[in-house]
């Protein structure tokens, strides 16, 4: 079911599950929260509410999420920017000011919403165990083949 069809309550519940702080979900705020949820779901498709540890062998990379306080950064960036722009345009709006540093700060902000990464060290443990099992089977097969050959060589006439 797409987000736009969910009820306000369901949206609220989802936001809580993804650890996104939010106010009331009303017509004027809903669109914003839907966007936030979409982003959060992209980065973290598994719901963080369950306590199970998932083992996945396909994805080995671990994503470390750094929790920063983007407000402080932005505040600093803003202060710097303001110093530049204050003289120039004061209060007038200038729609075409590009702001790469602030965009970056926003991105880190979005990451802070994502939940803690799934532990995947168990996945590599399984790999090692499987490898050992495979080796054991191989060794057993070789051993039997060897015994068979030895028996045949020792008493080739035993049967007769």
């Amino acid at each position: 079911m797409p987000l736009s069809e969910k009820s306000n309550e369901e949206i609220s519940k989802l936001l809580a599950e993804f650890g996104i702080k939010h106010g009331p979900i009303v017509d004027s705020t809903r669109k914003l929260y839907e966007k936030k949820l979409e982003k959060a779901m992209e980065t973290a498709p598994v719901k963080p509410s369950s306590d199970k540890t998932f083992y996945r062998e396909e994805e080995e990379e671990i994503t470390y999420i750094t929790y920063r306080s983007p407000i402080k950064q932005e505040g600093h960036a803003e202060a710097v920017k303001r110093r530049f722009h204050n003289e120039l345009d004061g209060n007038r709006e200038s729609d075409h000011v590009a702001e790469p540093p602030i965009q970056f700060a926003n991105r880190t902000a979005n990451h802070s919403v994502a939940h803690k990464p799934i532990r995947k060290s168990g996945g590599s443990m399984w790999k090692v165990v499987r490898l050992l099992l495979l080796l054991a089977v191989l060794a057993a097969a070789l051993y039997y083949a060897y015994i068979y050959l030895i028996n045949n060589a020792e008493n080739p006439f035993g049967i007769q």
Binding site: K21, H22, G23, P24, V26, S28, T29, K31, L32, K35, K36, P70, I71, E74, N106, A109
Partner: peptide, 15 residues
């Protein structure tokens, strides 16, 4: 409504 959260508000206003 956005709980005086400047970050949320900034995002909304841009949108």
């Amino acid at each position: 409504l956005l709980k005086k959260d400047t970050e949320l508000f900034t995002e909304w206003l841009k949108d």
